[in-house]
Amino acid sequence: MIEYFTIAIVLIVISLLVSMFRILREYERGVIFLLGRFQKVKGPGLIIVIPFIQQMVKVDLRTIVLDVPSQDVISRDNVSVKVNAVLYFRVMDPQNAVINVENFYAATSQLAQTTLRSVLGKHELDDMLASRDQLNEDIQEILDAQTDAWGIKVSNVEIKHVDLDESMIRVIARQAEAERSRRAKIIHAEGEHEASKRLLEAARTLSRRSEALQLRYLQTLTEISNDKTNTIVFPVDLLRDLKKSVAGMETPEPDDGGGEPAHSSSEFPDTSAVLGGEEGGKV
């Protein structure tokens, strides 16, 4: 009987000695309490915890990815949307994470949800869709400041989805279409304004010499003749003005007795006679 009792005591002592030794991984820390009072933070590696006298709470120091559930948010311009996000944080101070808050994971999750609703409610829908980077920074700064007392560092916040109703999607599509139409009208108006300036400059250049205007008429006729047409109507006054212009440029040279006299403008044929004396001709 005594032998069995001795064996039982030996086994108990061995089990207690074995339970004293704990192994913590590189990313783990142990918060040690001595008779209910905080003593120290141990780890990583092999540590000793005295049974019944010391208690250890294990804390993971790796980055935790928290999926923030979808939240119903009313924007500043009274648009109802559903927004969800993802939160990245880690424990920097195991002592505060265990002592100052009951469950730091649940507390951070609830704080992230309320902060997401409050921050997005101060902005309009366009900001939620176009300025996500700035909103992510604002939410991250607020969460990091409030969780600092818990020994937690919020490293990043990302808004994943902004879900809209079908009616709001149609409204946004109509707004985008109206915006594109407005830009097209502005571009067209700017083009007309620039073209009017160029036409005015061209008119001033052509008005300096009448020959330039006549040549421009002939160039236009040349462009029209390239089309598949049989009849081209143009004013007879055009040829008359052209004849006068060319006659003014021709100056009769004096006869030196050995050569032929220079041709004068009177030697040009009468265009109206060629066209049958009519005011207009057809070619």
Rank of each mutant, 00 (worst) to 15 (best):
V157G: 00
T147D: 12
Q140R: 15
I142C: 05
K153D: 05
I169F: 04
R132N: 07
S155Y: 08
E137R: 15
I169E: 13
Q134V: 13
V154C: 04
V154M: 00
I159S: 02
V162W: 03
L143V: 15
V171E: 11
I152N: 06
I159N: 02
S131P: 07
D148N: 04
L125Y: 02
T147E: 08
Q146D: 12
V162D: 01
E158G: 00
V171N: 11
R170L: 12
E158M: 06
S181M: 04
D144I: 06
D126Q: 04
M168N: 13
R170Q: 15
D133C: 04
R170A: 14
L164W: 01
R174T: 13
D163F: 06
H161I: 00
L125E: 02
D138L: 13
E179V: 08
N136P: 13
L164Y: 02
D163S: 06
R170D: 15
V157T: 01
D138Q: 10
E177G: 03
A145S: 13
S167Q: 12
E137Q: 13
A149C: 09
A149P: 00
D144S: 11
D126N: 10
A178R: 13
N156L: 07
A130M: 12
Q146Y: 06
E141I: 12
E166M: 07
I142E: 11
D165E: 14
K160L: 05
R182A: 09
A176C: 05
S181T: 02
I142S: 13
R182L: 05
I139S: 09
M168F: 13
E166V: 08
S181E: 05
D126G: 03
A176G: 04
L143P: 14
Q140N: 15
M168P: 10
V154Y: 00
K153L: 05
D126Y: 01
I142W: 10
I152K: 07
G151V: 07
A130P: 00
S167P: 03
K153Q: 06
M128S: 00
E177H: 04
E158A: 05
D163Q: 06
S181F: 01
M168G: 09
R170Y: 15
R132P: 05
D144E: 09
A130D: 08
G151L: 03
W150V: 06
L129Q: 01
S167V: 07
M128Q: 02
K160T: 04
N136H: 12
I169R: 09
A178V: 14
S167I: 08
V171H: 09
